[in-house]
Computed example of a mutant assay.
Amino acid sequence: MDLDGKVVVVTGGTRGVGAGIARSFVGAGAEVIVCARRPPDVPLPKTEFVALDVRDGDCVRRFFAGLPRVDVLVNNAGGAPYRLLTQAEPERHVRVLELNLLAPLTVSLAAYGHLKRVRGSIVMTGSVSGGRPSPGTAAYGAAKAGLENLARSMAVEWAPDIRVNTLVVGMVRTERSPLHYGDDEGVAAVSRTVPLGRLAEPSDVGAAAVFLASDAAAYISGASLLVHGGGERPAFLDAATVNKET
């Protein structure tokens, strides 16, 4: 999965999963540009940082127009705070949709000309939240469901010039994990719900992104790659009162 000389743009690539993706592409030999509204707290070696709000269409288009080449686009920027639907005005939920669904569409369209010229690749960072109920992050889950569908449609419309795939990511241990899972004991408890017994590391997601962008995945497009450690143990298995010993 050698990507020597390839130019990779990673949105939201300054921390957490995005930083792990950026590091993985650097490790594969790519030239990596990371975009976010603010610079990384810890500089990412061998990457170039560009300040960019992916929700600002004009800025996004100017950014890509100024690049000489793009081989791979990773639409990773996203996220949402925990917020029950009735605890916020609709406009706040709309902003979550803008960041997690509309922005990847805007960025992909801006990068389209570059990617078509080099028969490049797009990797979307999706979420298991898009395939199950997501109480507290309903708008985020809806956006991620839409993102996966958008990727499949792009893969058909833009074939054979551009491959488009989605990483369906589960729980990841990052510097922000305490906000979601609590202290080390909380992280350990959550990890026990994952069949593989641990949360993903950002490098796990990065390795999967590199694979989808590489020639090793040359015949993979419109696919959703599950990066979730085996998924979530169904709650009824723990609630059932029969066959506990088996």
Rank of each mutant, 00 (worst) to 15 (best):
A159G: 13
M154K: 03
G182P: 07
G182K: 13
V169T: 10
W158P: 01
T174Y: 14
V156E: 08
D184R: 03
D184E: 15
R163I: 04
A155T: 13
M154P: 01
D184M: 02
W158F: 12
G170S: 06
V164S: 00
I162N: 00
A188Y: 05
I162E: 01
I162Q: 00
V187W: 07
V168E: 12
G170N: 04
N165W: 01
D183G: 14
M171L: 14
M171N: 12
S153T: 15
P178M: 09
E148D: 12
E175L: 11
N149M: 12
V164M: 02
E185C: 05
D184N: 06
A155F: 04
A189Y: 03
A151T: 13
M154I: 05
A155I: 02
G170I: 13
G182R: 11
D183S: 09
L167A: 13
H180F: 13
A189H: 06
R173E: 10
D183N: 14
P160H: 05
L167R: 08
V187C: 10
A188W: 07
I162Y: 02
V172Q: 09
T166E: 03
N165H: 04
V156S: 08
S153A: 13
E185A: 15
V187I: 15
L167V: 13
S177G: 06
L167W: 14
G182A: 10
V164N: 01
I162M: 00
H180N: 11
H180G: 03
P178D: 09
R152L: 03
M154E: 00
I162G: 01
R173T: 02
N149D: 12
N149Q: 15
S177N: 06
L167N: 03
V168N: 09
M171G: 14
D161K: 07
V169F: 11
Y181V: 14
V156Y: 10
P178R: 07
V168P: 01
P178E: 11
D161C: 03
R176F: 09
G170Y: 04
G186D: 05
D183E: 07
L167I: 13
Y181I: 08
R163N: 07
G182E: 08
V187H: 06
L179C: 00
L179G: 08
